[in-house]
Write a protein that binds this DNA or RNA. Structure first.
Lengths: 343, 343
DNA sequence: CCCCATGCCGATAACGCTAACAGGAGGGAA
DNA sequence: TTCCCTCCTGTTAGCGTTATCGGCATGGGG
């Protein structure tokens, strides 16, 4: 165990706390303090320890630390399909924010959100001793799972419904739909059609509510909304139905991808956008500014959602979180796919 | 510590191995064996233990297990910007595949790939005792980091360059570019222009090579490729340059998003696609079939890449991996954005 | 009858770290 | 001087699990 002959070039086993202590000529406890509460150690000693840490390329073993502290510094994120733009962006932001606060994140992607699948994912993460979990739960079907979580696990939900016993952060979908619908009515359209997302998605339903509410408030006819599956394909197929109806002059589409399909259906039917039909999307994906024409849409700030979720979780882990519902305001981005109706 | 009065409804502290042992009337070691090597325990005893496990809702503490075994059942994935379609899809597939084999995955998203940032991420993951790491390393600048990894950590790289001391799995970018270019030449175009990705992206450079190779092979003029940043915006801006040049009849674009911007630039310049100019993209994002017109593009099977990466890593962790370079074949998807040149 | 192999299980000692307390040195107030 | 308080560091005892070894049956062959 003597100094130079024992450094990282000759030793195969990674250095442990004791090695650092020996090299620095202090006790293990002092090394631990240097790492966890530096001010409680005299500056001179601290420097010596840090030098030894560098010399040996020492990295603390988190399993050991976790075993004794009960904390792991790992957060779990449960989500469906992180291939979609929204969840992917939220996840990305949670990870970035968490890292700045010293947390890592472990993911569990599900193919469906049911009580069973959520419980299973929670157990998987929990057996890794995560300190807390964010659940991206945009489906109706997640509610049941969210109501039966282990009571001692800090959890925050994103895009979940109401009457959930955990804090929720979500974009105000209803307000977004209202902005879109008001914008179209404000341009002079008699009424607005809606091509919504799947019925089991909460976001989709809130958007339907917002849209319908504005129409009723203005005494405009409310046509049964069409329901797609978020894919451009469904936007195209359902778009063909709307395109064939000459009374349609304005459509509010549940997301940008379906709006893309819709634009194509309208073009194929010989209806110009925005001269004949106005289209508004939702999300503001990076591509939407380059659709033909550039899409008027409702921007969701997923980054903000991720940051809020993380901070709520932090509060929750500190025990001081209330079961708030935090709404992030969406913003209407007006581009070239909307105009007054043809006369 | 007496049976029924100590079950999960009255106890707050989660059950540990010892609780299960006490309830089942066996030693801790026997419980451990039931969990890790069931055949080494008599069936009758095993059943009694399992009943106790269920009764107490016992979940093993992974930190303790990990501390003694040195294995964690967690894999790390290092990546830049998991918001992009490619990395997001690959990550998703790795996670799905890993889960089926009992592994969890922990992520580390970087904002740039440098030797320093990679080392830092590796250490972060490693201090969580991950059993292995997949690095999504599509940048030139990652090579330096990949050459200086800790020798005892199993690593597999995705989309990395050559001369890397770890196994690499990647789509054959060069072949993809060749398919695209040959397709355009085959339609009768005199030559093909290229709008590529950023110069520090390996994929982008391999695509340039493939494109250039085919042109040279056919003795066609090779114009200096333009370089965008993958965004629709850059596709649009550089597209305007190409659109203004009447000699341009065919363009191979480095990804679908830039191709989208390009399509818009061409439309604005009054050049029809595919009658006046043919465009081929790369990636086959779900939207590309609904662009105007639907985009001919090169499909990359990210799922396949993810699965291969995981299995190579598994081999690597078992110590039997060679430093292979595994190529996944891309596929040309012909849609409506390509046609013979105008006469 | 003994001997050894085999199957099953338990006792003990780690793994690497930190919580909790203990103790010595130094300084200021009584 | 004495006492106490503060600042710094060390000692001890775990955290919950598994590796390792050893022991007690049982059984079959010599």
């Amino acid at each position: 165990m003597a100094g130079k002959s024992d450094d990282r070039s000759t030793r195969t086993r990674p250095a442990v706390l004791g090695d650092v202590a020996a090299l620095a000529g202090v006790s293990a406890m002092t090394v631990s303090r240097v790492l966890n509460a530096p001010d409680r150690v005299r500056a001179e000693t601290r420097e010596r320890v840090l030098a030894a840490v560098r010399e040996l390329d020492y990295w603390p073993n988190s399993a050991a630390r976790q075993l004794v502290t009960g904390r792991s510094g790992v957060l779990g994120v449960i989500s469906i399909d992180t291939t979609l733009y929204g969840p992917a962006s939220t996840l990305y932001c949670i990870e970035q924010t968490a890292r700045l606060s010293g947390y890592s994140v472990s993911i569990a992607s599900l193919s469906l959100l049911s009580r069973r699948s959520i419980e299973e994912a929670v157990h998987r993460l929990r057996s890794q001793s995560v300190d807390g979990v964010v659940i991206l739960a945009p489906h109706e079907s997640a509610a049941d799972g969210l109501r039966h979580l282990p009571p001692d696990l800090p959890v925050v939900a994103v895009d979940a419904g109401e009457d959930i016993p955990v804090p929720v952060v979500t974009v105000d979908q209803r307000a977004g739909a209202e902005h879109a619908t008001r914008h179209l009515l404000g341009l002079g359209h008699e009424t607005v059609r809606h091509l919504g997302g799947p019925v089991n998605w909460l976001d989709a339903n809130y958007r339907v509510d917002g849209w319908q509410g504005v129409l009723e408030e203005h005494d405009r006819p409310v046509h049964e909304p069409l329901r797609g599956d978020w894919s451009p394909r469904s936007g195209y197929e359902l778009g063909r139905q709307l395109a064939a109806d000459p009374t349609v002059t304005a459509v509010f589409v549940g997301n940008d991808q379906m709006a893309l399909g819709m634009l194509r259906a309208l073009r194929e039917a010989g209806r110009r956008v925005p001269e004949d039909v106005s289209v508004v999307g939702f999300d503001d994906v990076p591509e939407s500014a380059y659709y033909s024409p550039p899409l008027t849409t409702v921007r969701q700030d997923f980054g903000e959602v991720g940051r809020h979720a993380f901070h709520l979780l932090l509060d929750r882990m500190a025990g001081k979180g209330e079961e708030a519902r935090r709404l992030v305001e969406p913003e209407l981005v007006v581009r070239e796919s909307t105009a007054p109706p043809p006369r």
